[in-house]
């Protein structure tokens, strides 16, 4: 393949990664923004989404779309419910102390991950996509008769990958509507701005925290259900999304939704594109160093607040 078609392919792959990453990172960012805590177990909720999706979809016979839709509806609920339990029994008990929460959620990370290993096992298993048509993509070049289109060998994507991108955009829009247009969004934003005042105005802050923590986990799980037909479910799959979400949230600015989405596009796309041309390990090294240096020299990120 020539460079041009190769780049187009890389951009498409990057866009799928960016879409899923935006959802996952948004969950982490929401939790940090409203609750001012870092959820180190966030990647495990992503993994839970994929693993639960497999448990839901695999026994369902008939068209794969039935199992997939069921997983799409139920897996985020399961992950969200587990997150609410974690909030009630761990985070609330340490009174959302930022450092204790990090140590506690590291513990939760191991508990969820190792429980998945016991129950689900060490294998990687796919969930069948609801539809999966190969779509060949055209490329152009200047020929003797002017602009000519042709279909280079290997330049193709699938309808499902395009669906993932569209679905992610839809979910992001829905998230934006919830945050800006609904009462629940208003309550979350009020709690984010000033916890004490929110309490004084009768907002049940503790319940808001539980909802936010569950909602953040559900977003990660939703992202995982979308990607699991492409990537397979595995008990260690939470590691990379956690790291990338950290990177996105820090670059984008903690608690800033706009920054998170912009950074997810930036990181997801460049991760996808760089991995095609460079070694993925090298691109990860550069990304992690970049993030560390952003935190050191520009702690407020692109948009948003300083982390203290």
């Amino acid at each position: 393949m020539d460079f041009g078609p190769h780049l187009l392919l890389a951009i498409l792959e990057g866009a799928v990664g960016a879409a899923v990453l935006a959802l996952t990172a948004l969950g982490l960012s929401l939790v940090f923004g409203v609750m001012r805590v870092v959820n180190v177990a966030h990647g495990e909720f992503f993994m839970l989404g994929a693993v639960v999706a497999w448990f839901i979809a695999s026994p369902i016979a008939g068209h794969p779309a039935i199992g997939f839709v069921a997983a799409l509806a139920l897996a985020p609920l399961v992950a969200g419910a587990i997150a609410v339990v974690v909030d009630r029994f761990v985070l609330k008990e340490v009174e959302y102390d930022p450092e204790a929460t990090i140590v506690g959620t590291i513990g939760v990370l191991y508990i969820i991950q190792q429980s998945a290993l016991m129950i689900y096992g060490p294998e990687a298993r796919p969930v069948e996509p609801p539809f999966n048509h190969r779509i060949a993509l055209p490329w152009f070049e200047w020929g003797e008769t002017g602009l000519e289109f042709y279909y280079p060998w290997g330049l193709s994507t699938t309808s499902y990958k395009l669906f993932v991108i569209v679905a992610a955009i839809g979910i992001l829009l829905a998230f934006w509507v919830i945050m800006s247009r609904t009462r629940l969004g208003l309550i979350m934003r009020a709690t984010q701005l000033d916890r004490e005042t929110a309490l004084a105005f009768g907002i049940p802050v503790q319940r808001v925290y539980s909802i936010v923590f569950g909602f953040g986990a559900a977003l990660a799980a939703l992202a995982a259900v979308l990607i699991v037909p492409i990537q397979q479910a595995h008990y260690l799959m939470g590691h990379d999304p956690l790291l990338l979400s950290f990177i996105v949230v820090i670059i984008g600015g903690l608690g800033s939704v706009r920054g998170t989405v912009v950074a997810a596009l930036l990181i997801g796309m460049s991760d996808g594109i760089i991995s095609v041309f460079l070694s993925p390990t090298l691109s990860k090294i550069l990304a992690t160093l970049l993030v560390a240096l952003v935190l050191v020299f520009r702690p407020q990120g692109l948009y948003g607040k300083k982390m203290a």
Binding site: V94, G104, I106, G107, I111, I112
Partner: peptide
């Protein structure tokens, strides 16, 4: 994991 959570709590 269990030890970390219990110690924190």
């Amino acid at each position: 994991g269990a030890a970390l959570v219990l110690l924190t709590l």
